[in-house]
């Protein structure tokens, strides 16, 4: 109980601190390039009431949803397939880590050439950001399952699918969930980034369009909405994540 009160207090202090910082930055930089928190929130309300905002938002959410499903399904498949085979796990883990750390942004032109401008390119870009962390966390979670649990399963003569279903998966759930959380964030970032480079729809496009038109109100509001959404969902996922890890 005390812990929860403390983390609530910390979050409130932090949000207040960030708002003060924002206000200060506004005071320093001024009207030319920034808006105050209050102005931003007021403009956000008017923005949210327009139809064209919803067109872009739905577009982003659609792309993100499909990319997320792809990231999770492919990531889990790759992670389990490699994690269950020792040599594959050992050989592929460093390669996945290397892939994880490359600037995937540079791959964007290739994605565009392969998929053409539009929805599928955004989805592909979101998915390549998300698949690797999901696969990597899953691989490590499966690989580091306590040997005694696996032995127990073998003594019980479980079939390979039953082994995955009733031992490997449940034991790996907390770590896999961490992978899903990271994958969620990165897929979102990837999708929005994709929209920023080349697209005719979506929040990322809205952002780039606004800078072209030098519309500071829109830049501030869209950035604000993206940050609030990403931070909010991540906060919820993080709470679940902590509970899962606590279980052990």
């Amino acid at each position: 109980m005390g812990d929860r009160a403390k983390s609530l207090r910390n979050t409130i202090v932090l949000i207040a601190g960030l708002l003060v910082f924002w206000q200060l930055m506004y005071a320093v930089i001024g009207e030319v390039a920034m808006r105050s928190p209050w102005q931003t929130m007021r403009y956000t309300v008017t923005l949210v009431e327009t139809d064209f905002f919803w067109v872009h938002l739905t577009n982003t959410l659609q792309a993100f949803a499909v990319a997320l499903v792809l990231s999770v399904v492919l990531g889990l498949l790759i992670g389990f397939a490699l994690g269950l085979h020792r040599l594959s796990a050992e050989a592929m883990e460093p390669m996945l880590v290397a892939l994880y750390s490359i600037p995937k942004i540079t791959l964007y032109p290739i994605i565009l050439l392969a998929f053409g401008l539009g929805m599928s390119a955004k989805i592909a870009f979101g998915a390549i950001h998300g698949i690797i962390p999901v696969a990597l966390f899953t691989l490590n979670a499966v690989r580091s399952t306590k040997p005694i649990l696996v032995k127990t399963g073998r003594v019980l003569k479980l079939s390979p699918p039953a082994m995955v279903r009733s031992i490997l998966f449940p034991a790996a759930v907390p770590e896999i969930f961490t992978g899903l959380r990271v994958g969620f964030s990165l897929t979102l970032i990837g999708t929005v980034l994709g929209e920023m480079f080349a697209a005719q729809h979506g929040l990322g496009y809205l952002l780039m369009n606004a800078i072209g038109l030098y519309n500071v109100d829109v830049i501030m509001s869209v950035t604000f909405l993206l940050v609030v959404f990403a931070a909010g969902v991540n906060g919820i996922l993080l709470a679940v994540d902590r509970r899962l890890h606590f279980r052990v």
Binding site: T11, M34, L188, Y214, V216, I219, T223, V227, A231, N234
Partner: peptide
């Protein structure tokens, strides 16, 4: 440190690139 912990935990969920247009303006 405890106060900043939530920020650290959420930081990489935030699309930092979204701030790039803002930085260019500034």
């Amino acid at each position: 440190r405890e106060t900043l912990d939530p920020l650290f935990a959420t930081y990489y969920a935030i699309p930092v690139f979204a701030f790039y247009p803002l930085f260019i303006v500034i």
